[in-house]
Design a binder for these strands. Structure first.
Lengths: 152, 152
DNA sequence: CCGATATCAATGCAATTGCATCTATATAGA
DNA sequence: TCTATATAGATGCAATTGCATTGATATCGG
């Protein structure tokens, strides 16, 4: 019976805050990267996943699962990263359709330089605003908003 | 001395959740609107502000303050809204540079139809996942992440 | 083995975004 | 008043996004 109910005021407020705050924070993190002459956040997300994945690399569709970017978006983002020499694409033996994407040394270096700025943004924008207990509470609440069957 | 510190694990986790969850939720709300043959969320944001503003309307720069959209973005969004007959632009007497933007009847109607879908998304994606107490806690925590000197 | 269907990834094209700049009016200061 | 600067908003152009589709290989059912 709660199927089509209008949202409660509390839900609307939480939604509005979530939308507004997340946009603000993204914008500020992006600005910090730009000011540092560094690539946008999206590049970091991909480089981060690839760095975690190690030498084995990842298939593009695995990046899609992990980052939530659209397929065409990953396809073109990888093309740009490759053009910049930050990743390399390798034919994969057992699947003629696909490829494996691996981060390069230059890619790791770029990721490190981005993290110096990005990590600082996170520390300032979030770490400095809430105690660790509050941060954990926030993480837990946000975790309950994830779509079912989402990793991490 | 905490100036340039790296972010704590708790901060990183909260940041990651915030980025991921907010993107997921936006995407799902956008999808719901699309499925209903309705305009994107950005239109709702503007129509909502204009509806709240009433007959007096708002100046574009006021919309920029309220919605956080970039100036060029508002400029073109308003052009599209006007082309669709959802808003109208009025010369304003005491400032020859500017204009006042007012929502039309059709604009109000569109906003209503969007809310039927958008509100339901909020109810499902947020209202159904957390108790009102938890929603209030979430709002409070997010509120502490706002950039200083931000409205609502 | 064969055709039907599913999956992986790329891409043409339209719409939107971002950046830098531009026009026009307003305001401040000499 | 006249010039310099600031503010409001629009816009040309490049980059990115979104959508739909395509090409290529894999897999499944018979």
């Amino acid at each position: 019976m709660t199927e089509k109910a209008d949202p409660s005021p509390a839900a609307i407020k939480a939604w509005a805050r979530l939308m507004r705050v997340s946009r603000q924070l993204v914008e500020r993190a992006e600005d910090a990267l730009k000011d540092g002459g560094l690539p946008p956040l999206a590049w970091y997300d991909v480089l981060h996943e690839l760095a975690e994945a190690g030498e084995g690399g990842l298939r593009p569709f695995q990046l899609i699962e992990r980052t939530l970017f659209a397929q065409y978006n990953i396809s073109r983002l990888l093309a740009r990263l490759e053009a910049d020499g930050l990743v390399e694409k390798l034919r994969v033996a057992d699947d003629g359709r696909g490829q494996t994407v691996r981060i390069t040394g230059k890619g790791r270096e770029t990721r490190r330089r981005m993290w110096a700025v990005y990590g600082r943004s996170i520390a300032e924008l979030v770490g400095a605003k809430l105690s660790n207990d509050d941060l954990d509470t926030l993480s837990a609440l946000l975790g309950r908003l994830r779509h079912p069957a989402m990793p991490e």
